[in-house]
């Protein structure tokens, strides 16, 4: 008899897909915040006298 606590192949595939989607979402958010910072800082930095 199969162990009910053990996840099936379909469950494992679905979980893997969800994890990849979540990782991609977080990575995109990090990149967005980084580029927004550069864009917003960029104008101010360019105006600084060196």
């Amino acid at each position: 008899m199969s162990d009910p606590a053990r996840e099936s192949d379909a469950e494992a595939r679905a979980r893997r897909g969800r994890n990849i989607a979540l990782a991609l979402g977080l990575a995109i958010f990090v990149v967005l915040v980084f580029v927004v910072t550069i864009v917003k800082l960029g104008a101010s930095v360019a105006r600084q006298p060196f």
């Binding site: 379909a10 469950e11 595939r13 679905a14 897909g17 969800r18 990849i20 989607a21």
Partner: peptide, 9 residues
């Protein structure tokens, strides 16, 4: 009933 896929979200 079925495992949630990322498409469901």
């Amino acid at each position: 009933r079925a495992p949630a896929r990322w498409q469901d979200f």
